[in-house]
């Protein structure tokens, strides 16, 4: 199994409630900023991917709300918030 599909299977084990809107956004114009690049490796849910134009995009489904990207990349490139109540990951074991 590829690393990517293995991670998908793991995330599939968790309980997620639908997010009404993304709680983390790449700030406009920051897609190609160097500070965002580590997000490709440091997100434990692998939610950041590189587009064909070299910019980075974020797909929020599967977010574990850990904040690694916030601390690692910083608030200049990410508009970071927790999701509203009644949304996002709901750990059953913790």
């Amino acid at each position: 199994m590829s690393d990517e599909s293995r991670l998908k299977v793991k995330l599939g084990l968790d309980v997620f409630k639908p997010l009404k809107e993304p709680h983390i956004k790449i700030r406009p114009g920051m897609e190609k900023d160097g500070r965002l690049r580590p997000a490709l490796r440091i997100c434990p849910a692998g939610l950041y991917t590189e587009r064909s134009d070299g910019g980075i995009s974020l797909s929020i489904d599967g977010c574990l709300e850990c904040g690694t990207c916030r601390v690692g990349c910083g608030s200049d490139v990410l508009d970071w918030n927790y999701p509203d109540g009644d949304a996002g990951v709901q750990y059953r074991f913790g």
Binding site: K10, L11, L13, D14, P44, A45, L64, C66, G67, T68, V71, V89, Y91, R92, F93, G94
Partner: peptide, 9 residues
Amino acid sequence: ETVEYSAHL
């Protein structure tokens, strides 16, 4: 069998 995958700082 893994039953949960989590991450936290």
